[in-house]
Amino acid sequence: MEMLNKNDVYHVANLAKLALDEEDAEKYHGQLNDILTEIEKIETVDIKEQDIMISSSNNTNRFSNGSTTHISKDEVLARASRTNGDFIVVSSVFND
């Protein structure tokens, strides 16, 4: 049983912000379905447990110590792809 159709592949690629061409979509289609067939076992297994386990850490009430770390503007901009000396710059899509 196929879990994902071709459109689903494009949809999931969009969620993951990946560009797929026809060839990629074809390749991934099969691979993703293989993996998802395995994942189906999660849905079908019968379990009693109703609580979720986020991780084995049950740490509670941890608060930061208030001291500050700081990076200079130059260091930040030096690592960015495009800047104008003050801001990091990208091309717009929305105008809000």
Binding site: S64, T68, T69, H70, I71, K73, V76, L77, F87
Partner: peptide, 14 residues
Amino acid sequence: NSINSFKEAPNTNI
């Protein structure tokens, strides 16, 4: 832990 203020020059409080 950064100081909570952003009125300074851009990208200087990070």
